[in-house]
Amino acid sequence: MNNKDSMFHNVMASTVKDMNTSLAMLLQSFEANGALAQRMSDEHKQSFSNMHYEVARLQNNLFHLHTLYRIQYERLPIVQEEHFVHEFLEEQVLSVNGLFVIGDVKVKIECCEDMSAYFDFELVSSIIITALVNASRYTKDEVIIRAISHDDGILIQVDDNSRGFPDTILDRFKEGIQDKSEEFNEQGLGWLYCNEIAKSHENRGRAGYVALSNDSVLSGSRFAVWLP
């Protein structure tokens, strides 16, 4: 690595860390002031909620970017370790809970307490957070997160009662995972990132995947990830 490169990598790493800390502090303020926001007028509450949502998205996107960087330059390997799924999901909900509270969204986790699965905690966390932040934005007032054993792996579904994914998003996602899309499209890239991360989880020749649909039990949209 020459000097210019190493300069780039050092600046990259410390800048990401720094931005991440700033965003985390912002998010903590949003979480801490959630109660205050409850007493605001509807209009203020809405803009408070918007800000919170955008910051959560920023942080998540930054994480995606950083992950891609690390896969490229640090040869970041996937660490598939055993985790309790209920605890994992609970933690993901807690970390973005403010978004649900302010929008009066009921969140339910349906998962057997002792169920465990093998996956990379940080990376799958970023997948689930992506789904939760999205659901918090579009759902009317309910989100159900369900994890079940399925096909020798684990299936995690995030269902909401929004109006469902628009067809354009579903089509693009389908094209994206089949690598068919002719042109580079910004919309829906986050979902493709999730699919890539799921795909990098492997067991005995089988790889994970992400599926988007409007099969929600709450008749909204459904985000599903299967990990082997």
């Binding site: 991440n20 800390t21 985390a24 502090m25 998010l27 903590q28 979480e31 605890e87 609970e90 933690e91 807690l94 970390s95 809970n97 940080e122």
Partner: peptide, 16 residues
Amino acid sequence: LTKPFTQSVLVKRIER
């Protein structure tokens, strides 16, 4: 535990 984390996440981890 990687920073940053929220209050509730730290408490949950300790409980567990």
